[in-house]
Computed example of a mutant assay.
Amino acid sequence: MIKKMMCVLFVLVLTVALAACAGTGSKGTEDDKPTNTGSGNASTNPSTNTPNGASSELVVVSFGGNMAETQRKAIYKPFEEKYKVKIREVSPTDLGKLKAMVESGNVEWDVVDVGADFAFRGGKQGLLEKLDYNVIQKDGIYPEFVSDYGIGAYLFYVPIAYSLSDYSEDNHPKTWSEFWDTQKFPGKRSLWSIPQITMEQALLADGVKKEELYPLDIDRAFKSLDKIKKNVSVFWKNGDQPAQALVGGDASLATGYNGRLMNARKDGVPIGIEYNQVTVGGDAWVIPKGSKNKDLAMKFIAFATEPEQQANLSKINDIAPANKKSYELLSEEDKTRLGIKGTEQSQVIINMEYWAENYDQINERYQKWMMEK
């Protein structure tokens, strides 16, 4: 009798188990669809695929901080909603790690925000995928930030900044020649500790026209820097230092990232910003060679460089769009805040291809010059 009851019980358990398995299978397709949970650093199951076979997770690398927050709102979340994929954010950008990934054949990143000069250099070094300009529209993007391997992500301005304790909005240097004029505009200066953009400023101060800057006359640039060196109190390394130098009295005049300078102003720091002859650099989106999601990465870059997303970046943060068509989507107030209004003709766009070829040797000389008394 006991054996008979055990047999019946076994059959019942087996029947329930089989029914459970059948139930899971019937709804498995729905449960396996990627869930749009928003951007963040949490990882998802890498085996989950979209219907076209690509991974449902795109790994996007940026420099982090406030810029990453801006990109999340203006680009990542709208892209996730449009393509029903998950973006996993990684920061900060690390070019050494990118190179190691490509050389080892174990590429974990799909899209990377880099300095625009690396798009030229990394492409020549075989570290990047060629961009598909049948997918990505480069029309409207500043041509100085377009190459086979990268395209402009956003622009950053390096203007003249001045302490409102020492100068006023009516009386301050309005050109690089005046920034260099220590007789007319006395006081300590703060310059960037890297040569890119600083060399251009030195040559503009010495009278070189912006159309005749390249190739840079480096000997002339250093002679120009020699004229101001004794008045340079701070060679800044991070974006917060110029504002700190101005408010702390270490400098009366400085160069600096306009976004960081604007943030300081919003916090009540008494500094002014002059956008005439503003020097313009920028970042670019690239795809590491061997990305497992190259096609989706192309779509991401196409989306990120469209006028609407570019304009939304500039509405949230004090950075200029790399796409000129975005200007039509910005208010006059936005254009004034960003330093765009009335300055397009005087802007000095940095030649990133030149710096990709010449940065190392110029930087070595510049670092030695800074150390010399």
Rank of each mutant, 00 (worst) to 15 (best):
K3R: 15
K4H: 09
C7M: 14
L9V: 13
L18F: 15
A22L: 12
A22S: 11
G28P: 00
E30S: 10
D32I: 10
D32M: 09
N45D: 11
T50F: 03
T50C: 12
A54G: 10
F63I: 14
E69Y: 11
Q71M: 15
Y76K: 03
K77F: 13
P78V: 06
F79H: 01
S91R: 06
T93N: 11
D94I: 00
A100D: 11
W109N: 01
D117R: 08
F118A: 00
G123R: 01
L128E: 02
K130R: 12
L131F: 07
D132E: 08
E144R: 04
D148L: 05
S163I: 02
S165L: 07
S177R: 08
F179C: 05
W180I: 01
R189P: 00
T198P: 07
A205T: 08
D219W: 08
F222H: 08
V232G: 10
D240F: 11
A245G: 05
L246S: 06
G249C: 13
I271P: 06
T279G: 07
V280M: 05
W285G: 00
A311M: 04
K315M: 10
I319D: 00
P321T: 01
K324R: 07
K325P: 04
K325D: 12
D334T: 06
T336D: 10
L338R: 02
Q345P: 02
I349V: 10
D360S: 12
N363D: 11
M371Q: 12
